[in-house]
Each structure stands twice: as structure tokens, then as C-alpha cells.
Write a protein that binds this DNA or RNA. Structure first.
Ligand code: FES
Ligand code: FES
Lengths: 165, 165
DNA sequence: TACAAATAGGATAATTTTATCCGAATAAAC
DNA sequence: GTTTATTCGGATAAAATTATCCTATTTGTA
């Protein structure tokens, strides 16, 4: 029996396998929600928490927290009460950058943090992978700072990209 | 009093601010430990858990788990008992890539995962940031697959790079 | 053989992230 | 004004990650 059981023990990893690519789940939901809100605000439509959670396939209550966070950071607007919901002023859609959303939810460690977790990333006291990481981090930073919600919202509207599955 | 307290409530974020750049803490420790082991194995020196944890400034018992994981993945060797410790066969140091370590600890989501957490990253069913992420992920992948422990270990030995602080 | 110095590994605790629940506040419609 | 639909926010729970403790096992040395 001991022998049989040992065969079943194939998952020898410490954790159950980091499933996160770059951002926290909260941040992923925040990004997707923002894109969905933008795509609707583009048509002058306000969307409710329920619609958002359904569209981006996220847990409703958790998504609510994240949206509140974005509202507090003045990235999106909320309207309480019947017929309320979330929206982004049409003329602001194209000026909201992904970096603002990431920053609000995950903070700025993605822009400034050391790839190996040293307390600070410093040219004069680099970690072993500093040079290799610097470029990638910079590219990521540029991308986030130069991608705005309008471009992404249009792709969703046209069916060129998707928010779930 | 209400008013004074409200001023103290400056941290309006959901979480206490994601401090992770790319990898889990476990993975960061694993990478740093591997580099340190390599730099010593280069001189034919075996290092103990205690020395490693001290050098990379990590919690000893947790580091032990991670090292066990790397041993099981045959990335490093361990020797039990007095004068035991961890080592990497000299001739293997230059062939061990960062990607092997990351893969053993964090899995392959960093290479294959969708930036917005869609179930799969798929050209035919892309998320809104698919095109933007693809390049960065590829660059990261190339870097991890092309960087070996020897290069990094030598920088540590020469004092050109650092493992803590 | 006994002892000392290590790693291995199971159990458990602490912390953080993710998720849920519920009542309060708000605003539109009737 | 009452009802209804909705966000807000506090409290709490669940799950995952990070961390600690303790015992067993292994191996070199006296
Ligand atoms: S010091 Fe580690 S990335 Fe710069
Ligand atoms: S589908 Fe999201 S990165 Fe490819």
C-alpha cells in the first residue's frame, strides 16, 4: 500500500503552482472591468456591477471592492441608486492608461521593484539579474503607460478581442 | 474625533499593495540560492542551508523547503549529514538556465499564461492586451532560457552584483 | 559505537490574497 | 412617501502563500 500511495504523490512542488503571470487577480479584474466599462461608456451606456462581473467572469462581491478602489482613485465614476452603475466620461476614455489602473491596484513595484526582491533596484547595487530585467521592466512600463482604454475598448466592441474564457 | 480618524484612513487600497514583481517569494529565494550555490560550487565548496539563508537573507526553514524542491527537480544536489550541504556539479553550472528554476517553483504560467488571466492565451481568442503582452512575455522567456547560472555566479564572486539588501 | 552536523519532511501557524455576506446609504420611478 | 435597484463599506470566511517547529534520517568523525 505504501508503494501504491507513493506513486500518487506526483505533485512534489512546494506551492500549488503560481498561476499568476504579472498581475494580481484583483488587478486583472480591474483591468478587464475598466475595459468593459469603457467600451460601454463609449456608447453612453452605464453598466452595473452585475453586468460587469458576468461579462468578465469574476466574483461579484470581490469585483465590487476593486471597482470601489478605482472609483476612489478617480479612474472610473460610480452612480448609486436605481439605474446607477459605473461609467467613464467619454472624453476621458482615451486618456486613461493601463498604468493608472495597475498602479491603483498593485502599486508601483512592477515599475520599480527588483526582479529578485532586493529592497531597492539600484544601478550601484544590482542583483544578479538586474541588467536582464531592466529592459523587460522598462518595456512593460512603456507599454502600460502608452496603452489607453480607448484602443482596447474598440477591439472589444468589434469582437477583435475577448474578456473571458 | 470622527474627522481626525478619517484623516488617518489614507490607505484606501484593497490589498496591502502587491509587492511582487514577477516571481513568488519562493521563486526569488530559489533563484538567489541557486546563484549562491553555483558561485561556491565553482570553487568546489559545498554550502549549508544556514549559510545560504544568511547570504540571501531568507527564512531558513522556508528556504529549506525550496531547496528540497530544487533537489527533487534535480537542479541542485544535496548531501546529508555532517559536512553535507548543497552543491551543483561544476560542469553543470553553465548549463542550468534560470528558466529551469522558475519552472520548478512557479510553473510555466509566466511563459504561457494570459496577461489578463484568460484560461488560455490564444491567437484566435485574444484578450485585449494580447498583442502588447506577447512581446514582453517572449522577451522574458528568451531571457530566462538564455541566462545560465555561471554568468550570474561569476558576477557574485567578483562583487559586481549582490544577493541581499 | 556514540556523537555531532546536516538535510528531509510532516505538521502547523501566520500572513496575504481572494472571496462572500449583509446592512446602510443613495437615487430613480411610481 | 414607498418601493426598488443599486453602490458603499464593514465584517468575516476561504484559500493560497509564506514561515516556523520538531522529529527522523543520514553521514562523517572521534
Ligand atoms: S537590482 Fe534586481 S532588478 Fe535591479
Ligand atoms: S490572450 Fe491574454 S495575453 Fe494572450
Amino acid at each position: 500500500m505504501r508503494i501504491i500511495l507513493s506513486y500518487l504523490k506526483f505533485n512534489v512542488s512546494l506551492n500549488q503552482q503560481n498561476n499568476q503571470f504579472m498581475f494580481s487577480k484583483a488587478c486583472e479584474y480591474g483591468l478587464k472591468a475598466s475595459i468593459f466599462i469603457a467600451s460601454n461608456s463609449y456608447d453612453g451606456e452605464r453598466v452595473s456591477l452585475k453586468e460587469i462581473a458576468k461579462e468578465i467572469n469574476s466574483p461579484e462581491a470581490f469585483t465590487a471592492k476593486i471597482l470601489q478602489d478605482l472609483v476612489r482613485h478617480k479612474i472610473i465614476n460610480s452612480v448609486k441608486g436605481a439605474y446607477g452603475g459605473f461609467e467613464i466620461p467619454k472624453n476621458e476614455i482615451s486618456s486613461i492608461k493601463l498604468s493608472q489602473i495597475v498602479n491603483a491596484i498593485d502599486g508601483d513595484s512592477i515599475y520599480r521593484g527588483c526582479g529578485l526582491g532586493l529592497h531597492v533596484c539600484d544601478e550601484n547595487h544590482p542583483c544578479p539579474v538586474h541588467d536582464q530585467f531592466k529592459d523587460i521592466r522598462m518595456q512593460l512600463k512603456d507599454m502600460l503607460q502608452n496603452t489607453n482604454l480607448e484602443q482596447l475598448a474598440l477591439d472589444i466592441k468589434s469582437g477583435a478581442s475577448f474578456l473571458k474564457l
